[in-house]
Design a protein around this nucleic acid. Sequence first.
DNA 1: TTTTAAATCAATAAATAAGTTGTTTTATTT
DNA 2: AAATAAAACAACTTATTTATTGATTTAAAA
Lengths: 231, 231
Amino acid sequence: MKTILETDQDFICNINAPCFQMLSPEEVELIRAAKTQVSFRKGDNLTKQGAFASYVLFVITGLAKQYIEGDSSKSLNLRIIKPGEFVGLSAVFTKNKFNYSSVAITDCQVYLIEKVSIANIVQQNGMFGFNIIKRYCEQNVNLFDTLRNMTYKQMNGRIADTLLYLDSLKNQTPEIFQLLSRKDIADFAGISTESAVKLLKSFEKDNLIALHEKDIQLIDYNTLNEISRKG
Amino acid sequence: MKTILETDQDFICNINAPCFQMLSPEEVELIRAAKTQVSFRKGDNLTKQGAFASYVLFVITGLAKQYIEGDSSKSLNLRIIKPGEFVGLSAVFTKNKFNYSSVAITDCQVYLIEKVSIANIVQQNGMFGFNIIKRYCEQNVNLFDTLRNMTYKQMNGRIADTLLYLDSLKNQTPEIFQLLSRKDIADFAGISTESAVKLLKSFEKDNLIALHEKDIQLIDYNTLNEISRKG
DNA sequence: TTTTAAATCAATAAATAAGTTGTTTTATTT
DNA sequence: AAATAAAACAACTTATTTATTGATTTAAAA
């Protein structure tokens, strides 16, 4: 039986993510010592809203869904987490609790990295910090969009927005719609499942989209964008 | 609107668990400051095998299932976690990772308590420490039983053992069997789902148990105990 | 080697969950 | 107060998961 030793090179290649490429060998070593790899099965929670957060998650493979939990069984989906993305960045710098839940929608390989290490490296490596901040901002922009959606738009605009968002993931993840239920889509739009079903049918009748089993193909991007903008 | 302030008394009563009753007011305050309450929905993971553990969980209400994950989708169920029980105690004293997963089988209210606080209190309050150790030992005994089961017993003995264990929870949780699938039961016994189904039917024919929908009633405890002992 | 134990495979039945549709109720806006 | 938007409800269909059974293969023990 061959013993497998993970070299720095392996580690970097393994995670071939731009943000890790800019680390010095010592910094890579630091991360490597502070990280552990965990297999999440489809359906497992990566983070739980309200739980203490002592680490940041970095998704290597697989997809997850980030959401905030309300009363009883209500959820609002925020985004799809893709390989190469971090989860729980805010835990590093501010709160020591996760402020959202996330769940694997396919099996996932994930690095958990202790937050002190991330914080240390950010302090000594400007480019790494820059990258982290950039990601953090992107997530924030998305969050504001969602907030605007929820506050000002009504059903049609929200579902159009959701469809455009999910469709934008199709390059990287063509099967994205197969992984989501109507309830998931409704929870992205912040509307009831029944309303989501009805709107999808109505969009189909208006030739804005085409429904094939679970897959959804966008046809009339212009109109969808307009509906999304107008609300 | 009335502001609700949680007093020490509320906190203690709320968790009416023997082990917290022996704390001094200062210690209660320490725990209270270091804890957060989280609602887990049925199906949510309380702990994930391999993830960093910075806190201990204390189940207030609801039930969960503790299990170890193997390759692909194989699991071995270890125990049912009941209200008043801790999860992740080993994280406090030794490893800084959870060595098992657990998942809510009903909605759960859980306190997460930062492990440094638990460690501090154990050091200054002997009775509390004693209690924690006792719980830890109980879990360990259970673990050895499971190991013995897996190593020496065969199907009949294992499923008899599983049935006796689950039946012992019926006082506190009469609906326990309704909450478990055949796969769950099989995963407690460490056998295939199909074998579990066949054995249950065969036990029923031999008048050892009675199957009503999902519920299982033990009839012949003597024989079941014997089967469990003999293996 | 033979026997036994138990997993795996395959096919089907039963139960549960997801999706769909029309109607009614409840907010919200005008 | 009337009109509109969207949730909630109810009834139903379809899909998926879970449970069951018998047959076959694999592994372990005698």
